[in-house]
């Protein structure tokens, strides 16, 4: 459906998008994840034909955006970072204008606008001036604009910015609904959003693709850190002595106390090894009951921080390799600080 090849965009000396390639299949939801200024909006602007690429090609249904922009633009609905609204129009006027602009057939127009207003829950605002709407409603009118004409590909740049938690959930549901009949590309810097909605997540930073996978794979792929988080009741020395008997443990990190008499610690072993039973029996032998035991697994948030904060993330291998150890330690120590 969408085929992006070796896309680059250069502004003077600054490389906003750097050799980006990906494909999106029909009916999928692709999420761009990245910090501010990562090149998410630039990429979207290129796909929609708003700006040109310095190099590379974008094809939608096999049609190149540079060769036949009008043809491709018919297939795309776009909600940019700032919803493109005319403040002096009412919601209804605006949607009629957009329908007209996108060449929706006259007969279907009325019904389509009513349906879209219903779906985006802006029907009660139909006759209000857009400048009088709250940010959340403006965002939804922007979304309504993007869906207008039911294009095959819908591109949403940070669709949930400015919405309250309830609206965010509604928006996610709406996006999921849309994906039944449309292909969706959305961008966000919020992790839960992407993991809740998307089929595929692409993490980009400084214009480069860092990693691209399913959200659940991402956490197993990067999240296996090999270790356990423990709360153990008993004396510190006894517990440490007992754990030392477990040979496969590489490192033990103790955290600050929460309750007196309870030791909070994290033990590390090699990745993909299961030491839970050994730890359990060792501590039972020492007569120190385990109150809590949890495998270390990174959330998408951690993965995101991990891959975007390392300075030399030119390839996935590097992020997977040496850097991982370092960031994990950082992450754990910051956790210790919280407790």
């Amino acid at each position: 459906m969408v085929e992006v090849k070796n896309l680059s965009k250069r502004y003077g000396d600054h490389l906003a998008v750097d050799n980006l390639s990906f494909t999106v299949d029909k009916g999928q939801i692709l999420g761009f994840l990245g910090p501010n200024g990562a090149g998410k909006s630039t990429t979207m602007n290129i796909i929609t034909g708003y700006i040109s690429a310095t190099e590379g090609s974008v094809k939608i249904n096999g049609v190149d955006i540079f060769d036949e922009p009008e043809e491709v633009k018919k297939m795309i609905g776009y909600l940019p970072e700032f919803p493109p609204l005319y403040p002096d129009m009412t919601v209804k006027e605006y949607l009629y204008f957009v329908a007209d602009l996108k060449k929706v057939e006259k007969k279907k127009r009325k019904q389509m606008i009513a349906d879209i207003m219903e779906a985006t829950k802006i029907t009660p605002m139909a006759d209000r001036l857009i400048k009088h709407l709250s940010k959340g409603y403006k965002q939804r009118v922007g979304l309504a604009q993007a869906i207008m004409g039911y294009p095959e590909l819908i591109i949403l740049d940070e669709p949930t910015v400015g919405l309250d938690p309830k609206q965010i959930i509604e928006m996610r549901e709406l996006i999921k609904d849309l994906s039944k009949n449309h292909t969706v590309i959305l961008s966000s810097h919020i992790m839960q959003e992407v993991s809740a909605v998307c089929d595929t997540v692409m993490i980009i930073d400084k214009g480069k693709l860092i990693i691209s996978d399913k959200p659940e794979n991402l956490s197993t792929r990067l999240g296996a850190t090999g270790g356990l988080r423990l709360s153990v009741k008993g004396d510190k020395k006894v517990i440490f002595e007992a754990l030392k008997s477990v040979s496969r443990i590489n490192k033990i990190v103790r955290h600050a106390y929460v309750n007196p008499g309870v030791v909070e610690l994290t033990v590390y072993c090699n990745e993909n090894e299961d030491i839970r039973e050994e730890v359990f029996y060792a501590l039972v032998k020492a007569n120190t009951p385990i109150l809590e035991m949890q495998s270390l697994r990174m959330s998408l948030e951690d993965i995101f921080l991990k891959v975007t904060s390392s300075s030399k993330h030119s390839s996935l291998q590097e992020a997977d390799g040496n850097d991982a150890e370092e960031s994990v330690e950082k992450e754990v120590s910051s956790n210790a600080g919280d407790i």
Binding site: K73, F82, P84, P87, L101, Q145
Partner: peptide
């Protein structure tokens, strides 16, 4: 200024 040019330039009009 209103960034509505994005709507116009990404719509199927020349």
């Amino acid at each position: 200024k209103q960034k509505t040019d994005q709507l116009l330039y990404t719509a199927p009009v020349t």
